[in-house]
Design a protein around this nucleic acid. Structure first.
Length: 426
RNA sequence: GGAGAGGUCGCAUAGUUGGUCUAGUGCGCCGCACUCGAAAUGCGGUGUAUCGCAAGAUACCGAGGGUUCGAAUCCCUCCCUCUCCGCCA
């Protein structure tokens, strides 16, 4: 959500910025509804003030025992009352309409964001390490997973459905090791505070992060009207909903592990093999609440925090700065980290690191006080994956596969996995 | 799931025959006084949002409805917390 004042005063600018994202905004609807509301509110306030005064008068008369005068005064309130009721109805309706209109405005892309509407116009800003060289043809992870019995895809299909892999034996252990390693790395080295949230949330939380009402189709919903989290971003961001934070507590840095659940209505077709696109997957998510002036520095440092995992594991990756049209509606500036998966011969998006500025904070009503006694202002919120586990799993086993079919485990992971090599006999 | 008790402006509390409660008090916090300085003490201030140049007005006492000239106070629905019981990893 954008600041209502900005929509009022700088609509041309907002329209132009939305255009960079290829989004049409309901500018006229906003202006019409907003001015209607602004016309009605003062009227309603005035009538309410009159009503309050009358009620007080009646109270005083009653207290003095002047019953008849009080009764007389009562009979004059009817007209006022119906007027107030009518105005309040309009007020409520317009307020609801305006809110729905405001939700349709996308966030404004930062000046440093490249122009463009398609993924082709994203800009590669960094590449780390070379693609690994092989003197044999590297296999995709699903073949490795099958021969080493790390993942049982048919079993998952049997007990749940497609898109629900079953990790078995050393595969299960590697999965668990990656989670532990990344959580330790982000909390101990990069100083995030660990959160282990519920995997189900209510609708309010999803509205706070912008997943509802627009993306209801992508979510799993339970009979108790709770939703399975599509990412830890949802529960973690909402932890601070409706709070006014102390300046001294900023920046607040949270790292959380959850399973993530996505129905992905349109998933049929692309990337259906292996781990690339599944309904349930594990992810470590990083969320930061920061002072507005520092949010772009914090974005760079969050990007580094996410990258540092891949560096420690020695995996080749590149960083893309997304163009205005490809970064989604909520973001101001977004980097994607893509890890190289040599078996599938593709770069896999393994993290999106985004600065939302105040867009989410305004929705979830998360503020801070710039100085003691000052008016509360919205914090800036950033989040990024640190990292998505299945695609890391994929890149890792494909990168470290050997000619003999075994997989080397990079040094930092060894104590978590409990071995330096996965093989059929291990 | 059943029974009972509750949810009040940072924290703790007052408020239950509806009307000086648009919310009192204590703590905390800010300012001033006293002091070499501090503690203690005294005085004043101390929520959020919207509209307004301002004075000020309006809304908010878990959420949403209702009754009433008027509701923190009464009624209904829902959410949450606590105690006891039941069930259970």
């Amino acid at each position: 959500m954008l600041d209502r004042k900005i929509l009022r005063e700088q609509m041309d600018w907002v329209v132009a910025q939305a255009k960079r994202k290829g989004v049409e905004v309901p500018s006229e609807e906003f202006t019409t509804t907003d001015s209607q509301l602004r016309a009605i509110k003062p009227q309603a306030d005035t009538f309410r003030a009159e009503m309050n005064a009358k009620a007080k008068e009646i109270g005083n008369l009653m207290a003095q025992g002047k019953k008849e005068e009080a009764e007389a005064a009562k009979s004059h309130t009817g007209n006022l009352k119906t007027q107030i009721q009518k105005l309040e109805e309009d007020e409520k309706r317009l307020e609801a309409e305006l809110y729905q209109i405001e939700l349709r405005f996308p966030n404004v892309p930062h000046d440093s964001v490249p122009e463009g509407l398609t993924p082709e116009e994203n800009v590669e800003v960094k590449a780390w390490k070379e693609k690994p060289a092989f003197d044999f043809t590297p296999k995709p992870h699903w073949e490795l997973a099958e021969s080493l019995k790390l993942i049982d895809f048919p079993a998952g299909a049997k007990i749940s459905g497609s898109g629900f892999p079953v990790y078995t034996g050393w595969g299960a252990r590697l999965q668990r090791a990656l989670i532990s390693y990344m959580i330790d790395h982000q909390t101990l080295t990069n100083e995030y505070h660990e959160i282990y949230p519920p995997f189900m949330v209510n609708a309010e939380s999803l509205v706070g992060t912008g997943n509802l009402p627009k993306f209801e189709e992508d979510l799993y919903k339970t009979q108790d009207n709770l939703y399975l989290v599509p990412t830890a971003e949802v529960p973690v961001t909402n932890l601070l909903r409706d709070e006014i934070l102390d300046l001294t507590s900023l920046p607040i840095k949270y790292a959380a592990f959850t399973a993530c659940f996505r129905r992905e209505a349109g998933s049929a077709g692309k990337d259906t093999r292996g781990l690339l696109r599944i309904h349930q997957f594990d992810k470590i998510e990083l969320v930061k609440f920061v002072e507005p002036e520092k949010s772009y520095d914090e974005l760079e440092s969050m990007l580094q925090d996410a990258e540092s995992v891949l560096q420690a594991l020695g995996l080749h990756y590149r960083v893309l700065l997304l163009c205005a049209g490809d970064m989604g509606e909520k973001g101001c500036k977004c980097y994607d980290i893509e890890v190289w998966s040599p078996g599938v011969e593709k770069y896999l998006e393994i993290s999106s690191v985004t600065n939302f500025e105040a867009y989410q904070a305004r929705r979830a009503n998360i503020r801070y006080r710039p100085e003691p006694g000052a008016k509360p202002e919205f914090v800036h919120i950033l989040n990024g994956s640190g990292l998505a586990v299945p695609r890391l799993f994929s890149a890792l086993v494909e990168t470290y596969q050997q000619a003999d079919g075994t997989i080397l485990i990079p040094e930092p992971l060894q104590k978590y996995v409990g071995t330096d090599r996965l093989s059929t006999s291990s």
